[in-house]
Simulated scan of single mutants.
Amino acid sequence: MNVEFIDALEQIQKDKGVSKDILIDAIEAALISSYKRNFGSAQNVKIEINRETGEVHVYSQKRVVEQVEDELLEISLEEAKEISRNYEIDDVIEREVTPRNFGRIAAQTAKQVVVQRIREAERGVVYEEFINRESDIITGTVARLAKGIVHINLGKTEAILGPTEQMPNEQYNHGDRIKSYIVEVKKTTKGPQVLVSRTHPGLIKRLFELEVPEIHDGVVEIKSISREAGSRTKIAVESKDLNVDAVGACVGPKGTRVQAIVDELKGEKIDIIKYSEDPSAYIASSLSPAKVVSTEVNNDNKTAKVIVPDYQLSLAIGKEGQNARLAAKLTGWKIDIKSESQAKSTE
């Protein structure tokens, strides 16, 4: 290695942000293994690379002892004194043992180390970028499908959309652009692993933040979300400005805002509910689109008895109980729904 090599390391430091000294330290450590592998040496060696010229020097190291048990690792005090009178027991004597053809091995090893460290540094940059985007929404294109896993190209890396995070009945085709929610970013030996979801309630929250300026600006707040991905979502919103209608802001002019989200979710139905501090009003709204006659709440055990018109009972409960289930999850209350006829018969 030579001055040009040191100059190249300095350029890498500027371009990639990898310290020249860290690279040289790593190369020196790798060269010790290369030396022992190529020259069959069991002795202790130290390798130094001149930070200015790039010259490589190999030094054997022997500890000064009273009684030599291993000649490769130790030297007697008597022999040490012949080299220099200043040596004492436990001192380490270094002698240069640089092989003639070691420069070629050093250059080859150095190249491998530099390439590896640059790759690690680039992975580190990508990891830092995406770890700061956990719980955020990201757009990518479907790169490939393998064993039920969808790999999404994000440009600098790929995201993994696992089987349990995919929406039911949603087809993923190569080249499709899709939005997904970053659930977790892991650091692995092969680089950052970005795990995303299409079923997470956080995806709904982020989509509304993108589509509704009032939510993005904090005028309208999302209080709660309950979701059964691919089928139906309920979202409770509240306005912090009396002049702004929270539900209207989310629906948008002629329904354009909520429709954009429904389209992104391939037709998933979305009920936008007005949040209320009054449990009765909140629970009644949560059962939308069903109309509620009356609500009786028990604050001690957070249960509610809801009466609906006879013709609204099936709508309030929903197919396979979905509407009632989502309402309970949205509000955090256990809801018992009865029709007017059922309520009268139990009186």
Rank of each mutant, 00 (worst) to 15 (best):
M1V: 15
N2C: 13
Q13R: 10
K14M: 07
G17Y: 14
V18L: 15
I22W: 03
L23P: 02
A30S: 14
A30T: 05
S33L: 11
F39K: 10
Q43V: 01
K46Q: 11
N50H: 04
R51V: 09
E52N: 11
T53A: 05
T53L: 06
G54T: 12
V56P: 12
H57G: 09
Y59Q: 11
S60T: 15
S60C: 06
E66A: 15
V68P: 05
L72P: 00
I75Y: 03
K81Q: 15
K81S: 14
I83T: 13
S84G: 14
R85H: 15
Y87R: 13
D90G: 03
E94A: 13
E94K: 13
E94V: 01
R100T: 13
F102I: 13
I105T: 13
T109R: 07
A110M: 06
K111F: 11
Q112S: 12
Q112V: 12
R119L: 12
A121M: 10
E122H: 08
R123W: 14
V125I: 13
Y127N: 09
E128A: 15
E128I: 07
I131L: 08
R133N: 02
E134N: 05
I138Y: 07
I138C: 04
G140H: 11
T141G: 13
T141W: 03
L145Y: 00
K147F: 04
I149H: 02
I149V: 15
V150L: 07
N153S: 14
L154N: 03
G155A: 07
E165K: 10
E170M: 10
Y172N: 00
D176H: 01
I178F: 02
Y181Q: 01
E184T: 10
K186F: 09
T189S: 12
Q193R: 15
V196F: 04
H200D: 14
P201Q: 10
G202D: 12
L203K: 07
I204E: 08
R206H: 00
E211C: 01
V212W: 03
G218N: 04
V219I: 15
V220Y: 04
K223C: 01
K223R: 13
S226T: 09
R227Y: 10
G230A: 10
G230V: 05
R232I: 03
R232L: 03
R232M: 08
K240A: 01
V247W: 04
C250W: 01
P253D: 08
T256G: 00
V258W: 00
Q259N: 06
I261G: 00
D263I: 05
G267D: 08
E268H: 06
I270N: 00
D271L: 01
I273P: 01
Y275W: 14
S276I: 01
S276C: 09
E277W: 02
A284M: 04
L287T: 04
V292F: 04
S294A: 14
N298C: 03
K302P: 08
T303P: 06
A304D: 06
V308Y: 07
Q312K: 08
Q312R: 06
S314R: 12
L315A: 07
I317W: 02
K319V: 09
E320G: 05
E320T: 12
G321L: 13
Q322R: 05
L326R: 13
A327W: 06
G332T: 08
W333R: 08
D336G: 07
I337N: 01
A343P: 02
E347H: 14
